[in-house]
């Protein structure tokens, strides 16, 4: 969370240390991809990796880490490590699904608003401005509070439908600058249809920007999902990192000094999001480099 990073505008890299930054971005991107891969493997192989069943709650509660329970147990007598491993599934599924939904919407709105312009574009952009001012995170919480039994699907839907705004903005400004490039006019002059120009000519040029923004949208979705679960209004019956923190908070884990229960889920959320941010940054750095080297020729 915090200031939404702007992923649409690769910095013109003719300044000091540009090359170094590109290399740094590339390496960091690889690190991010490696971390993400780890989490995906954990999510897929959670049943194999977990030492216990995710529903086993017959251990002594409030145990600090030990050989039997590497991350201790919670107040219900469940193994924290098992919960953490299984929780990866929820975060990744909700994050990626909501991110893809929001990105598709954002790309569509941005493309149409940027390319066609006119009153449709104007209306769409006013809508985007409007949604940007309304605190969507708060709206998300409020809606989740009102809708009974949201469930994973519901979470994906409302997060997806409330997080496309940044993508749309970024894509629109990118489409505007692409449209000013000669090849778009050239496509019109040789008689291509608007749909072909938008989806076959402009869209492939947007891929790096889409990818960089997608990564931020996914990050936002993971954090939003965790927030909803923390408030107990997401999907309380599904094992997730947010739910773990929610239970830890409501059962006063702090007063039990149960750091082993509080630290791991948050660490996982942050590290997973960090991996996505690194990937996005790497993509943008490579993109800037490619654009830069093209300008030199």
């Amino acid at each position: 969370m915090g200031v939404p990073l702007e992923a649409g505008r690769p910095v013109r890299s003719r300044d000091a240390g540009a090359a170094r930054r590109v290399r740094f971005g590339g390496t960091a991107g690889m690190v991010g991809a490696a971390i993400l891969l780890c989490f995906i493997l954990i999510a897929v192989f959670a049943p194999v990796l977990s030492p216990y069943s995710p529903h086993a709650s017959n251990f002594t509660p409030w145990q600090p880490p030990s050989a039997a329970h590497l991350l201790g147990t919670d107040d219900y007598g469940q193994d924290v490590l098992t919960q953490v491993l299984w929780g990866a599934r929820t975060s990744i599924v909700v994050g990626v699904a909501a991110g893809l939904l929001a990105s598709s919407l954002g790309v569509l709105v941005g493309l149409v608003a940027g390319y066609t312009g006119g009153w449709i574009g104007e209306v769409l952009m006013r809508l985007v401005d409007l949604l940007q001012v309304i605190p969507t995170i708060v709206l998300l919480i409020i809606i989740a509070a009102f809708v009974p039994s949201l469930g994973l699907g519901g979470e994906i839907l409302i997060i997806g439908f409330l997080s496309w705004v940044w993508m749309a903005r970024s894509i629109r400004s990118q489409v505007l600058s692409e449209s000013a490039r000669g090849y778009v006019e050239a496509s019109r002059v040789i008689g291509m249809s608007n749909a072909e120009i938008m989806f076959r000519e402009i869209l492939p040029n947007l891929l790096p920007v889409i990818l960089a923004n997608l990564v931020l949208v996914v990050t936002g979705a993971i954090l939003a999902e965790a927030s909803l679960d923390f408030l107990g209004i997401g999907s309380p019956n599904v094992i997730s990192w947010g739910t773990m923190l929610s239970l830890a908070f409501s059962t006063n884990a702090i007063l039990y000094n149960a750091w082993w229960w509080i630290a791991p889920p948050g660490f996982c959320i942050a590290t997973l999001c960090f991996a996505f941010i690194l990937i996005g940054n790497g993509v943008l750095a490579m993109y800037a480099q490619r654009r830069g080297s093209m300008a030199q020729h």
């Binding site: 000669g182 090849y183 006019e185 050239a186 002059v189 040789i190 008689g191």
Partner: peptide, 27 residues
Amino acid sequence: RHRVQMVFQDPFSAFNPVWTVGRSIGR
């Protein structure tokens, strides 16, 4: 469009960078 065509000011952006020149001319 068949009869009136255009030559652009900026040749560097007149072709879509993601496609080969062959595809653009082929279209």
